[in-house]
Write a protein that binds this DNA or RNA. Structure first.
Lengths: 355, 355
DNA sequence: GTGGGCAATGGGAGCGCTCCCACCGACCTG
DNA sequence: CAGGTCGGTGGGAGCGCTCCCATTGCCCAC
């Protein structure tokens, strides 16, 4: 040690004059434990190069003083922020089946529970928000990003890619998604639903799709088609009607289908909300569900349990998706160079009364 | 200036050797603008004591370098964090009408949009989380707290009170709530609902309440009672059944009421979800809604629009509650000593088919 | 006994800001 | 013209950490 300050190195003096009502600092812990700052830091950060004796002394001092590291000071020097952002484009979020959002959050939060990372929630509602977010990300204020509800032409994932910020999407933009993502098996779920309708003996199975610029909508339509074709049925355009994931859209789509193909005897809707709309149009047209027309939705949302008749629907493990997203993100943060990863989680058909 | 370093004070040299790919710092901005660090800081923070000339030079330099202040460094010295936490006890959150959670978030986020504050989301699911949160708050890692869904005996508000952290509740614990809060006019909404039933000519109006250790449940029951009494009707215990805000609870409560008072001709439920359950029991008992029994819910949630018949319900301005909470919190942060404030927002009866 | 290696340790330097004090010059006053 | 006043300014100090280097003491081999 170079002799700079004439400070006697005697036994620990406890605390020196502590200013204000401030929280204890590393230095105070060190003084109380009778060791140097470096050693305390090593103990706090779990370094192995510390003697048992020193570790015990530090731990005692930490407990006694109720020491909690100052996050800002740490961030300043490490330039880690110990925070991740959950980014939700609001417009899309509203379309999602109702518990979706809270379930994602719930899963994310659960998985984050013992990681000491903060969860920042960022709602993006317009162009200005998008720009602010980009600036924000460029300023490196988070260690990673979870992005929910991606449209095919959303610029945000590209920004994340360019900035090389660890990030995980819920869902993907298309077949070739370079970023890590976690998605439900939408195609598989749709196929199960249509198989179920076929097994029931339905002959003319229609489908109401979501906006086809979204990969979810494409995938669900793909599953519908696959089920028909594997059963040797013909895929017919007149049985497909595009809507926008809203109830009103579902109503209009069903009306159009009834007009075009009056003899339709089953409908697979790409969301419960649209199915609820379809149900109204069916009832208005005097069709009984499921006797005249069988109906299946997607999401197994709260709406599905409250329609009359209760709706058969495809469930996706939303909470598990949230958890998995965090797991992937943490790995990516820990090992920045690693290859992007893709996870697809199984869906499940919940059979109720409507089909 | 004291002559310390032999550093020539010549014209601005632009940037010096910049290390790494780091973001520009205050110092670099100062150099480029040809002013001192202090002046740049003053400009960034909107101090009035800066000449026009200097301000312009700094702003140009900021734009050119794409400078964004380092939040950690700022926090370290000011001990402001520029972040607020939205705390949601998960168990309770799940009981809430479905869009509640997202609407609160949406309002909060909207109001926060141009304040440069970060929104931290904290879900609390058990005792361990509660303790972690307390430690977290003690470590002063947020400037303020928004707390949603408070139970009467929730210890969290007390912690907030003791720590004197600026905080605003959604709802209140009881009549005497010392903390700032924003609540819907639950009593008023309930009264409107029951008045509506009275106007319809209903004679025996029952109610299904929420857990009476929650102030919302108490308030809604209070409104029910007030409406009856102001109409000169008698408040009768046998017409009141307590449930737990769940669908199943609503079902059971309705069964009990039908058994006890078969001649019941109207029911006010303290939530839509419970009303949905009640509806099932009514149907099972062969009662027609609204002809035999009129039914009103509370929350105007998505469920209300999808029951058959569609449910008359009391709407609360949830998003507006979120916005107001932020507004109060910001005021409290800006002026720590100020008196706590209480805001009650009006509710509204949405008449549909069930009553 | 001497030298080398190694684990454990202390503490200086420095992260990028804000705060504050000292200083500068222009302007006003008597 | 000396002596204030005051808006504007520069930059040292310091916030609480981590990083890293130098130093220590110990053990083992030669």
């Amino acid at each position: 040690m170079t002799p700079t300050a004439p400070r006697p190195l005697g036994p620990p003096t406890g605390r020196e004059e502590r200013r204000g009502a401030g929280r204890p600092t590393l230095e105070e812990v060190a003084a109380l434990a009778g060791v140097g700052r470096g050693t305390v830091s090593r103990v706090i950060n779990g370094s192995p190069r510390v003697s048992e004796r020193a570790r015990a002394a530090v731990e005692r001092a930490v407990a006694e003083l109720g020491y909690v590291p100052n996050r800002a000071a740490r961030t300043l020097v490490t330039s880690r922020t110990d925070a991740i952002a959950l980014v939700v484009p609001e417009a899309e979020a509203r379309l999602f089946s109702e518990p979706y959002f809270s379930d994602i959050i719930s899963g994310v939060s659960a998985e984050l529970a013992d990681s000491d990372l903060q969860l920042l929630l960022v709602l993006v509602r317009n162009q200005r928000d998008r720009e602010r977010l980009s600036a924000y990300l460029k300023a490196q204020r988070v260690d990673g990003v979870l992005l929910v509800a991606v449209h095919r032409d959303d610029p945000l994932p590209t920004v994340l890619e360019d900035l090389r910020i660890p990030s995980v999407l819920a869902g993907r933009r298309g077949d070739q998604e370079p970023l890590s993502y976690v998605a439900a098996d939408n195609a598989g779920g749709a196929r199960m639903a249509v198989r179920h309708l076929l097994r029931r003996g339905c002959e003319r199975i229609a489908t109401v799709t979501g906006p086809l610029d979204m990969e979810v909508a494409q995938a669900r339509l793909g599953g519908y088609r696959a089920a028909l074709e594997e059963a040797g049925r013909e895929y017919r355009d007149e049985l497909v009607e595009q809507a926008d994931f809203t109830e009103q859209g579902g109503r209009a789509a069903m009306r159009a289908l009834l007009e075009r193909v009056p003899e339709v005897d089953a409908v697979f809707c790409a969301s419960d909300v649209m199915a609820a709309g379809a149900l109204q149009s069916l009832r208005a047209a005097g069709r009984r569900v499921p006797q005249d027309v069988a109906l299946i939705g997607f999401d197994d949302s709260i709406v599905a349990r409250h329609t009359d008749p209760a709706m058969t629907s495809v469930r996706q493990p939303i909470q598990e998706m949230g958890r998995t997203m965090v797991r992937l993100l943490l790995e990516e943060i820990a090992e920045p160079g690693r290859a992007r990863r893709q996870v697809v989680l199984a869906t499940e058909l919940v059979v109720r009364e409507s089909a």
